[in-house]
Write a protein that binds this DNA or RNA. Structure first.
Lengths: 152, 152
DNA sequence: GGCGTCGGTCCAGATCGTCCAGCATTTGAC
DNA sequence: GTCAAATGCTGGACGATCTGGACCGACGCC
């Protein structure tokens, strides 16, 4: 799926996506046109979804994060989902199996803000909120290594 | 905290962090040295944590994601945390208030893999697992707008 | 008013990216 | 086994981009 060169390119780009083609090229031992071509293909194949920037919420004043589990009241599922999508403070939301329909991450500046935001969905869903005290693992990609699950 | 120019630069970089300084410059109406200088300052201030690349887990064969809530058995908290950190399939882990001590995201290739990974912590913690069925909101940064929470 | 600082521009030399032609290796058909 | 096509790489040339330095104006502070 990915060869060793692709993997090394991705590793470098995960660390710094603004690395120049030339430098990537020397890191993996190719010419820069080859690297450009490989990156283009990784994008085409959808392996690279985007080159982006990681922003520190703290630095923007979002000193608090919470994980919110959301159980919409009967018949309110779609309204709730739409509501969540429209609130930009939700930084992530997954629809999951089990009692909790959604699990979402919320960025807020204060407990007051948290309360205000949750109030907006309180009449359409039950929520349980857990404040994040620490982040042992910050968002990271899955392992790139050995894509050998089908090979015997 | 951030002025309008910074915000626009960040917006552009969130969409594509490989955008050239020159193009960023025309987008916000500055010269490219100024843009370079602003980016440098955003990094210094810690607003920009990293330029990185978003990888599609599906494209690497990780067809399944799960949210796992983890309650270490008495006295096992640190061992469990260390274990989690060392398993690269955990793509995210937060330490939270409440009964569940950790909430983590797991990337796996199959239900079998899920079972195998959870077995590795089964004797040190109780876990509840929810399979992700859909992602209404994929990871996104908090709103950059109007950093005016302290101003009356 | 004088002065330092901050944030900006402009310019030139250095660096980088892209295009293209050409070469080696692999693949598949016969 | 051989040929042709396809694939993936390289090197060089040229245009685009980045970088560092000189300089400038606005602002706040003695």
């Amino acid at each position: 799926m990915l060869d060793d060169l692709d993997r090394r390119l991705l590793e470098s780009l995960i660390k710094d996506s603004r690395t120049s083609l030339k430098e990537l090229a020397q890191q993996v031992g190719l010419s820069s046109p080859s690297v450009a071509e490989r990156l283009r293909r990784l994008e085409d194949r959808g392996v690279i979804r985007a080159f982006t920037v990681e922003i520190d919420p703290q630095a923007l004043g979002y000193t608090l994060q919470a994980i919110v589990r959301i159980r919409p009241l009967p018949g309110k599922l779609h309204i709730v989902q739409k509501l969540i999508e429209e609130i930009p403070e939700f930084g992530e939301c997954d629809k999951v199996t089990g009692d909790d329909c959604f699990v979402a991450r919320l960025f807020v500046r204060s407990i007051g803000d948290l309360d205000k935001l949750l109030d907006r969905i309180a009449d359409k869903a039950e929520t349980s909120t857990a404040i994040i005290k620490a982040q042992p693992i910050r968002r990271r990609p899955p392992p790139l290594g050995a894509t050998a699950s089908s090979k015997p």
